[in-house]
Simulated assay, not measured.
Amino acid sequence: MVSAIGNDGPLYGTLNNPADQSDVIGVGGIDYSDHIASFSSRGMSTWEIPHGYGRVKPDVVAYGREIMGSKISTGCKSLSGTSVASPVVAGVVCLLVSVIPEGNRKDILNPASMKQALVEGAAKFSGPNMYEQGAGRVDLFLLL
């Protein structure tokens, strides 16, 4: 499952459910200058505290500021939010699934392997910390 982490940034520990779960790919938002969007929620997950450590979240980030989308009537409008960034990651997941031969999908494809592929193929930024960017920006070219 891919889920937006929320638009409650820039404070830490503001990510939302279900993106705070370990088996969910939590997605934060960035702008076209590769800066963490001010609205993007930040990790760590807080529901385990004080009896455990919070998880690193988001898992990855994607473009989520001033993305062109369709209007309800006609034409386009500018959209912003982690709910705009998470469909980008869901699309990347679909593309990755499509390159796995159909006969092998059940053998190698599961939520953990897909999450690992996204995290390993992400482009890390030098400035933001792991609670702002997770593994970094999803990079489809690195994944393929």
Results as ranks from 00 to 15, higher is better:
Tyr32Ser: 10
Tyr63Gln: 09
Leu143Cys: 10
Ser98His: 07
Gly64Met: 07
His35Pro: 02
Ser33Trp: 15
Leu143His: 08
Gly6Asp: 05
Ser83Glu: 12
Asp59Ser: 03
Ile100Leu: 10
Gly69Lys: 11
Pro50Tyr: 09
Gly26Gln: 06
Gly54Lys: 09
Ala85Gly: 01
Val97Asp: 13
Lys115Asp: 06
Ile108Ser: 06
Asp59Pro: 02
Asp34Ala: 00
Val2Phe: 01
Ile108Tyr: 14
Ala85Thr: 05
Asn16Trp: 01
Arg137Val: 14
Tyr53Lys: 12
Ile100Asp: 09
Leu79Val: 03
Val93Pro: 00
Ala62Asp: 03
Leu142Ile: 03
Pro87Gln: 14
Leu95Asn: 11
Phe125Ser: 07
Arg65Phe: 05
Val2Arg: 00
Gly43Leu: 04
His35Cys: 09
Val89Lys: 02
Asp107Thr: 14
Ser113Ile: 08
Tyr63Ser: 10
Pro87Ser: 14
Ser80Arg: 05
Ser78Leu: 15
Glu66Ser: 13
Thr82Trp: 04
Ser33Ile: 08
Gly136Ser: 08
Gln133Asp: 09
Ser80Lys: 05
Arg42Lys: 11
Met68Ile: 14
Leu95Ile: 13
Lys71Ile: 05
Ser73Asp: 15
Gly52Met: 04
Cys76Ile: 12
Ile72Ala: 13
Thr74Pro: 01
Gly64Trp: 01
Ala135Ile: 05
Gly43Phe: 06
Val84Glu: 01
Val119Asp: 00
Asp59His: 04
Glu132Leu: 06
Val27Phe: 11
Tyr12Asn: 10
Pro128Ser: 15
Ile108Val: 15
Ile5Phe: 09
Val119Trp: 03
Val60Phe: 04
Pro111Trp: 03
Thr74Cys: 09
Ala122Trp: 06
His51Tyr: 15
Pro101Glu: 06
Ser70Ala: 13
Asp8His: 13
Lys77Ala: 12
Gly69Asp: 11
Phe39Lys: 06
Asp31Trp: 07
Ala122Thr: 08
Ala85Tyr: 09
Ile49Leu: 15
Ala85Phe: 01
Val138Asp: 00
Gly136Ala: 03
Met130Asn: 13
Cys94Val: 14
Tyr131Glu: 03
Val56Glu: 11
Asp34Cys: 05
Ser45Met: 07
Thr74Arg: 13
Met68Asp: 12
Ala117Gln: 07
Val97Cys: 13
Thr82Met: 06
Gly69Trp: 09
Val88Gly: 01
Lys71Asp: 09
Phe141Leu: 14
Thr46Tyr: 12
Val99Arg: 15
Pro101Gln: 07
Val27Leu: 12
Ala117Met: 10
Gly29Val: 05
Gly9Ala: 11
Gln116Asn: 08
Gly29Asp: 08
Met114Lys: 04
Lys124Val: 11
Gly43Asp: 05
Ser41Ile: 05
Val24Lys: 02
Gly127Val: 11
Arg137Ile: 15
Val89Tyr: 05
Val119Met: 13
Ile67Thr: 01
Gly136Leu: 00
Ala19Met: 07
Pro10Tyr: 03
